[in-house]
Amino acid sequence: MHKFANPAQFLRLARPLTPVLFWSGLLLALGACAWGLTMTPAERLQGETVKIIFVHVPSAWLGMGGWVGIAIASIIQLVWRHPLAGISARAIAVPGAVFAALCLATGSIWGRPAWGTWWVWDGRLTSMLILFFMYLGYIALASASSEKGNVSRVAAVFGIVGAINIPIINRSVVWWESQHQKASITLGGSSIDGAYLWPLLVSFLGFGLLYGAIVLMRMRTALADIRIEARMRRLAED
C-alpha cells in the first residue's frame, strides 16, 4: 500500500485501470439492468415495480460503502499521512453523494406504488437522508479547507466520526418500526429468490466498478491540478 501512496506509482497503475473499470462496469451495469428488466418475473405482491431493486439496492450499498471508504482513507491520512489518502477521500465523496441521492430518489419512486406514499419519516429513510446531507457537508468542508489538493484534518475527522451513521442505517429497520422491509441479504445468506438475486449482484458489481472508475478519474484530476498549480507557480517565478 505504501508503494501506491507515491503519486507517480499510483498514476502508472491508474491510467490503464480507469478504462478497464469504466467499460467493464458499464457493460455489467447495463447488462444486469436489461437482465433484471426483461427476464425476471413480476413479484406476487409488488408486481413489476420490484424491478426498481436493480438500481435502488446497488445505490444504497454504494452510498453507504462510499462513506466507509472516506472513513478508511481519513484514518490513513491522519495516522500514516499518505499523500493520496485525503485526495482519494475527496474523490469518493461526490459519487457517494450521487449514489445516496439515487437511493433516496429511486426508493421514493418505489415507495409510491408499494407503500402508497413517496416518503415516511422512519428510521431507514431518515438515516439515509442524513447520510446524503453528511456527504454535502463533507464536500463543502473538504473544498473550503483543502491543503495542497489534500483535505484538511477537520474534514478527515468529520469523515471518521460520520461513519457512526453507517451501522445506524444498517440496523435502523431492526431498532425502529419501519415501513422499509428488514434486510433481505446478510452475511449469513439471502431470502431473495435467485431470479432477482443474481441480476442484483451483477448490477451491484457493475455499478461498483463504475464507482471505482469515477474515483480514479477524480483522483487523476486532483493530481493534475496539483501539478498545474506547481508549474504555474514556477513559471511565475522565472
Partner: peptide, 18 residues
C-alpha cells in the same frame, strides 16, 4: 411509469457524473 422514472433518473445522474 415508476420503473421508467427510476431507471431514467439513475441513467441521467450517472451519465452526468461520468
Amino acid at each position: 411509469t415508476f420503473i421508467t422514472a427510476a431507471y431514467t433518473i439513475t441513467g441521467l445522474a450517472l451519465g452526468w457524473l461520468v
